[in-house]
Amino acid sequence: MAHRRSASGGVTRKPATIYDIAHEAGVSHQSVSRFMRGIDQRSATRAKIERALETLEYKPNLTARSLVTGRSHRLGALTHEIDQVGPSQVLQGASSAARDAGYLLDIVALDMGNAGEIARALEVLLQHDLAGVVALASTDEMRGAITQLSLDAPVLLFSEQEEDEVAGPSDLNGVPLAMEHLLSLGHRDFAHIAGPPTWSAARNRRLAYEHLVRVEGLSSVGVVEADWSAASGYRAMRELLSRGRPTAVVAANDQMALGAMLALSEAGLDVPGDVSVTGLDDAPDAAFFSPPLTTVRVDFRARGRRAVHDLLHGIGAPEVVDDSPEPLTLIARRSTAPPRPAAGPPRRTHSDGL
């Protein structure tokens, strides 16, 4: 294979051409060209070319490939709130799946509070010829904005399915796992820090909490809505403590659980001695909270990969690689323990607020 010397003096490999591939495989360059265009080959010829591609570490030129096949190999991703653990990991999975299938993923983060910014962001995205767009919609506002779009490319709306009381929590809802763990430890007095009500995931997690409180005949200090942040979890926990003292708190994500644990500590309560706390999502830092947080691991990256898979399948792309999310998993750490024996009625606490 041809090589060239880099500016730093090192030797680097020149990109392989179809002639290099043909020579390595022992076939004609016409056979390689037909292979690149997706035209069927005899299995023996196809196997030779595939081995040569791997040996030469061939990287396709997507622009040239699009000109040859007449199909774009760029995808668009519309999202928002990428500072949140779930959306950011979904994007990582989507980007990885697109890359594995031979596509580039152009990511546009929308500011849902600014209609002008949304329009400008879409103008940037639409400058490219796209094979399809996956819209990662977590909130009602995002879904509303996407449904009003007029795009030439196929659009896949990927969002968490709304659950209802009749059917009960689905297998994708992690709250039941967290509460079953707490029930197994002997807890009966609960509280819930919910996410923002415009998020379908937050509504689903709250529905699961209230469903299990009712079905299991549990005592609930109440539910306080927050905004996924640690600061909002802190404020929510202080409000819950003003109503009474549960022995177990189920936070709808790990960041809010972190804020809740600080509020409990400032109130003179030990975690998990006085109050057990669980989170949800298994954020990268959850194992390093003080104490390490019991949580439910959600395979967000596989959900992102699945979104791209569904988009590619919908547009008839042959490069589809299926990938299903792993089941939810409870990660038991040191923020949960059996409740202490009751010494009388629950102690009420008061605070001045944040």
Rank of each mutant, 00 (worst) to 15 (best):
L67Y: 14
G244L: 01
L151Q: 03
A109E: 14
G195P: 12
A94N: 01
L56K: 09
L78Q: 04
R4M: 11
D164T: 14
A137H: 01
A16H: 03
G144K: 04
D323V: 08
L126Y: 05
V249M: 13
G93K: 04
L156Q: 02
A16S: 13
S351G: 15
A251I: 11
S184Y: 09
S324F: 06
Y103V: 04
A7G: 03
P325S: 07
S335E: 12
G9L: 09
K59A: 09
F289A: 09
G102S: 04
L130S: 06
V277M: 12
Q161D: 05
V124G: 06
H313C: 04
A47T: 09
N253D: 15
N253K: 11
I146S: 00
A167V: 04
A22V: 09
G132L: 05
L177D: 02
Q84C: 03
A302L: 06
A52I: 02
F190M: 10
D164L: 04
D310Q: 13
V90F: 09
T278M: 11
V213L: 14
R13D: 02
G268Q: 10
P292K: 15
F289M: 13
G304K: 02
P292Y: 13
A343V: 04
P176K: 02
G144L: 00
R120F: 07
E180F: 02
D152P: 00
A194L: 11
A194P: 08
L212I: 15
D285G: 02
F288V: 05
V221N: 11
A283F: 08
F300W: 15
V213E: 11
G70P: 05
V213S: 14
V250H: 08
A317K: 10
P60Q: 03
V11E: 12
L185P: 09
S66P: 11
V68F: 03
H23L: 12
G132V: 06
R46P: 00
P284F: 10
P338H: 11
F158L: 02
V277A: 08
E81T: 09
I193D: 08
G116A: 12
K48H: 13
A342K: 07
K59D: 00
L126P: 00
T147V: 12
E24D: 11
D111R: 05
I193A: 11
A52E: 01
L122I: 08
G144F: 05
P154I: 13
G344I: 10
L328H: 00
R214L: 14
T12V: 14
G10Q: 14
Q127T: 08
R71W: 02
Y103W: 07
L354K: 14
P341Q: 01
E180L: 06
L269T: 05
G186P: 10
A135E: 01
D40T: 07
V85I: 15
S324N: 09
P15T: 10
H309Y: 10
V275M: 06
A191P: 12
A178V: 01
D111W: 03
R303K: 14
S88V: 08
S150I: 10
S220Y: 06
D164K: 07
H313P: 00
A119N: 07
R245S: 13
I39Y: 09
G217I: 06
G233L: 05
A64E: 11
D274F: 01
A25S: 07
V108D: 03
M36R: 10
D106T: 14
L328I: 12
P154V: 08
R74M: 10
L136S: 00
N114G: 00
A317Q: 06
A77N: 01
R340Y: 00
